[in-house]
Design a binder for these strands. Structure first.
Lengths: 147, 147
DNA sequence: CCGTATCCTTCGTGATACTG
DNA sequence: CAGTATCACGAAGGATACGG
């Protein structure tokens, strides 16, 4: 049952994303893609159709959705099934490999949504500090005291 | 001690990354940036200098490192300290907010490094299937049987 | 040493139109 | 319905040179 497939003399390589040429860099690129995060999130629990995905992801173009789905399929993270009907129906579902990743991406999405306020505040502070630095007392005669 | 700072009548907004205009989209963009993942990873445990970061991240240009660091600083994820010495010394360290994120990013890096082999294999399979589909029996007289 | 400024090339992205 | 093809544009990214 679990008979091992003969391995073609594999070099046991330990990947390292800090190496410029490491393929994990490409992987990070895909994982880190905003559309990837959103698409995999929707497929986490259920199989979905192309049009459904496009409807549920605000602002994604047909081209980018196709491109993202193709990439994910190629990487083995999702599976694409075509039903030979008229009109055609195509369904996408997550693979076991994809399932090992989807939790991490959900965590990223959650982090973004949870900490968005803090980040927005930090941005305001930063921009204000920049403004003050380049324009010491321009805005008004009021001295801004930070503490 | 834990006296609350007066909140400016904040609307309790629940962010949703599936909305096109949601700021969390921007957050995902930054988080999901390959350089962000690598930079924050290096700053997880220790304060580092600009030149050290550049040396440790293979293939990053000065421009992109600067850009990434600025963005992270603006988002409140890292802090930048300039020591008024000659020659100048600048150190970057992670903030408490950044600390809440760095674990997730480490998990992403780990996932990439752990599952790289499976992904590469999936890519080979996909490419081969594509090749076979577009070129049914061209490569040789041998019929390829998949199962 | 730590940047900023500039140029230049490449890539991603959206809009549009067309096909099985 | 679910794509593919093409074009056109701006942003991303690298290389180089210069500045505090």
């Amino acid at each position: 049952m679990l008979e091992q497939i003969e391995q073609p003399l594999q070099i046991v390589s330990s990947w390292n994303a800090y190496q410029a040429a490491c393929p994990t860099r490409l992987m990070l690129n895909r994982i880190a893609d905003k559309w990837t995060v959103l698409v995999l999130g929707l497929l986490e629990n259920e199989t979905k159709r192309f049009s459904t995905l496009q409807r549920e992801i605000g602002g994604i173009s047909q081209k980018m959705l196709t491109q993202t789905l193709r990439g994910l399929e190629r990487d083995g993270l999702i599976a694409r099934t075509v039903y030979p009907e008229v009109p055609p129906r195509v369904e996408y579902k997550i693979t076991p490999l994809g399932n090992t990743l989807v939790g991490l991406l959900a965590a990223l999405r959650d982090w973004s949504e949870t900490h968005m306020d803090e980040v927005l505040q930090a941005q305001r502070d930063y921009d204000q500090a920049q403004q003050a630095a380049s324009n010491p007392e321009a805005a008004s005669g009021v001295r801004v005291v930070r503490f």
